[in-house]
Computed example of a mutant assay.
Amino acid sequence: MIVLKDAEVRQILENLTLDDIKEYQNTLSRGLIEYYQDNSIIPSRIVTTTKYATHLFMGSSGSQVGMKALTGSHSGFRGLTTILDKHDGSPIGILNAATLTAFRTALSTILALVKVFVPGDQKSFIGGNLIVYGSGPQAEWHLRLALTLYPGFFDKVVIINRTTKNADALVTILKAKFSGVLFEIVSMDDEIHITEAYKNTSVIFSCVPTSSPVVLKRNIDQDRRSRIFIGAIGSYKPEMIEIDGETLINQCISKGGKIIVDSINDCLREAGEFQQNNISKDSLIEFGSLLIHPTPKKALDQLNYMKSQRVIICKLVGLCVMDIFVGSKVLTEAKRKGLGTTIDNF
C-alpha cells in the first residue's frame, strides 16, 4: 500500500503537460460514464454538521473501488481518499484529499469546457478575459488547467475575491508557471470593475461557497463575446447559490439548453441553484451522457446546443467516483516516480 502526502500529490499534478491532462480527462471520463450507466455504484453520501465543521463520507463501488472522507471548516477542506482492491477490499493507497479534490473538480469543469471550446482551435471563439471567483485551491486548479490547455488565448485573468491578500498569494503561485499571463485582482464588492471585466469574457469559473449569487444576468448581458462558458463548483448546500436564476433560466434553459451536472439526483438535492429556482430534472443533463458512445438523443441535442448557442452552464457538486478514478491514476504515477510511503503487509 502507498500513502501519499498532499505535497507528493501536488508534485505529480502541478507540472502536467497538455497530453498529461488529456490522459487524466480520459480517466475521469471512464468514471463519469460508469456512473451514468449505473448510478447505484455511488451510495448516498453521509453529511453531518457539528459546531466545528461539516463532515462528508462518500463511497464508490464501480470498476474502481474506494472511499473518501472530507471535512469542511473555516480552515478549508481536508480529508483523505482510500483506494481499495475491487476483489477483496485490500487497501491499495491512501491519498491526502486536499489537492486531489481541487484537481479532480477542476478537471471535471475543464472536461465540459473543452466540449465548448476545442483546445488549439482558433475558430472556437475562446479568448478575452477569464474570470474566476475565489482564490483557494479550487480556483488555482481551474486556472492551472485552463491556462495550460489554452496558452496565449486569454487577454487577462480576473480574480474576483473578498480579500485581496489571498488573491495576491494565488497570483504569486500562478506567476511562477504562467509568467506571461496578465492577472487582475478585483474585490467582490467592486461592481464597477466587475461589470467592466464581464464586457469581454468567454470563461467564468465560480469557486465560492456563497449564499448570494455572484454570476448575474445583468453582467452576462453586458458581455460582448459570442460564446460564454460558466462553470460553478462552490455551492454544495441548498442555501448556497453561485448563479442567479435569471442566468440559468433566461440565458440557457429557455433557449433550449440544459445545465450540465455530474449527478442529477445529487444536484437537485444539494445545489441551491436548482432548489431556489424550482429547476427540475428535465432541465439538467448528466455529464456521462455527453461522453458515452453511442450518444443518447438527449445528449446529442445538448451537444448541438453547446456548439451553437451563447451561454453554456456546468454545475458540479462532486462525486466520489471522480476521486477514486483520478486518485488511482495518481497512485500509478506515484509508483512510477518512486513517490510516497510504501507500507508492506498493512
Rank of each mutant, 00 (worst) to 15 (best):
F154H: 07
F154R: 02
D155Q: 15
D155L: 14
D155S: 15
I159T: 06
I159Q: 00
I160S: 05
I160W: 10
I160M: 07
I160C: 08
N161T: 08
T164H: 00
T164R: 01
K165E: 15
K165G: 13
K165V: 08
K165M: 13
A167C: 01
A167G: 05
A167V: 04
A169G: 08
L170V: 05
V171T: 09
V171Q: 03
V171E: 02
T172A: 11
T172R: 08
I173W: 07
I173A: 13
I173D: 11
L174D: 04
K175I: 05
K175R: 15
A176Q: 14
K177S: 14
F178T: 05
S179T: 11
S179Q: 11
G180T: 12
G180M: 06
V181H: 07
V181N: 08
L182R: 14
L182D: 15
E184P: 05
I185H: 00
I185M: 02
D189F: 10
D190I: 01
D190M: 03
E191G: 09
E191C: 05
I192G: 03
H193G: 09
I194L: 10
T195I: 09
A197L: 09
A197R: 14
Y198H: 13
Y198Q: 05
Y198I: 07
T201E: 04
T201L: 10
S202A: 11
S202I: 12
S202C: 11
S202R: 01
I204S: 04
S206Y: 10
S206A: 14
S206C: 14
C207K: 01
C207S: 08
C207I: 03
V208A: 04
V208Q: 00
T210G: 09
T210R: 04
S211C: 10
S211D: 07
S212W: 11
S212E: 14
P213G: 05
P213M: 01
V214W: 04
V215Q: 02
K217D: 04
K217P: 07
K217F: 10
K217A: 06
R218T: 15
D221L: 03
